[in-house]
């Protein structure tokens, strides 16, 4: 009996010890490493608090969805299609703005000018089942170019799309397993730097190929409770985001530090002083637009993705949009 009681008491103490670790009063901002983190780089660099207790977290792209699922994020930047899946009902989070407008490029060994020249080739694609792959498939479909994801169906009349990890792009190009690759900045710049004498070049800008020169790649979502309890903070945050692009243009040398200082210890940063410059910043296509004012544009983009993969997009309720104006 004594043993059971002491074990029970130990468990209670153990649980209580961790309650102090969770600060209920802090506002937690989560952004994925890469272009989305650039869109809040000024706030990351200055650790902007807005007279509140704000914690900034730069996480890997794989972890960002969990911050929404577990509702640890009060503010987050997430891929548009994932936002539609996890928050589309508007019951927990609302879409506030578009933060990145497309940073995908096709690189390859031959400097081609037409998508038709991809026929018969193997194109590696990062995140083939998410925004990069779905956007590229939509572009191919829209240009009446046959493609397949099945190696057994590949032939001279179609494009074989192969899902690859970002870390494999260079190796796959060097070993001729792929002729072209769909990559995002800054991976694009990093991969190109591994080839000499223009052996591999940038051939297509997916944003141009999409038709509108940009598409809503990621959204800023805010927890409903934060909007209800602290609208002033939300508006101040948005205001900073609207001015962020100017800050990054004027403080290119500070962007890498801004992001890496808020990365989890031990995580490999996307941006380093070797791969980040004005051109990469420009190619990351960051900015800020109201999601509410551009909901037709967002819905149209999601509908295009849905035409490729129905499960990739969730249903959007009218509650999903937040008009901060």
């Amino acid at each position: 009996m004594k043993k059971i009681f002491s074990l029970f008491a130990t468990m209670i103490c153990f649980c209580l010890a961790f309650t102090g670790c969770y600060d209920d009063n802090s506002i937690n901002v989560y952004v994925p490493d890469g272009a989305p983190a650039l869109s809040v780089s000024e706030m990351l660099y200055t650790n902007e608090q807005f007279n509140e207790n704000v914690t900034y977290n730069v996480v890997s792209a794989n972890e960002i969805a969990n911050t929404i699922l577990q509702q640890t994020a009060d503010i987050a930047i997430i891929p548009t299609n994932i936002a539609s899946k996890l928050c589309g009902d508007g019951k927990t989070y609302k879409a506030v703005g578009i933060c990145t407008f497309g940073n995908l490029y096709v690189i390859g060994k031959n400097d081609i000018t037409s998508l038709n020249e991809l026929t018969g080739e193997t194109v590696g694609c990062i995140q083939i089942q998410n925004v990069p792959g779905l956007t590229f498939q939509y572009i191919l479909k829209n240009n009446q170019i046959n493609y397949t994801l099945d190696e057994n169906e590949a032939n001279a009349n179609n494009v074989l799309l192969k899902g690859i990890e970002g870390t494999d792009v260079v190796a796959q190009l060097k070993t001729n397993k792929i002729s072209y690759a769909v990559v995002a900045e800054p991976l694009c710049a990093t991969a190109l730097s591994k080839f000499e004498n223009n052996e591999v070049v940038k051939v297509f800008d997916l944003q141009e190929l999409y038709g509108a020169n940009y598409y809503p790649q990621s959204l800023l979502v805010v927890k409903n409770s934060l909007i209800e309890n602290n609208l002033t903070f939300v508006k101040n945050f948005i205001n900073k985001m609207q001015n962020n692009k100017n800050w990054t243009n004027e403080n290119i040398d500070k962007c890498v530090e801004a992001i890496s200082n808020n990365l989890k210890t031990g995580a490999t940063p996307s941006f380093t002083n070797n791969n980040f410059n004005a051109e990469v910043l420009n190619n990351c296509n960051i900015g800020f637009m109201s999601a509410f004012e551009n909901k037709d544009f967002i819905e149209n983009y999601l509908s295009n993705l849905k035409s490729i993969e129905e499960n990739a997009v969730g249903n959007l309720s009218s509650e999903f949009w937040f008009n901060y104006e």
Binding site: A65, L69, I82, K85, L86, Q129, E309, N311, A312
Partner: peptide, 9 residues
């Protein structure tokens, strides 16, 4: 399974 995981199904 990979597809289901990616799309939160």
């Amino acid at each position: 399974m990979q597809g289901a995981k990616i799309y939160f199904e």
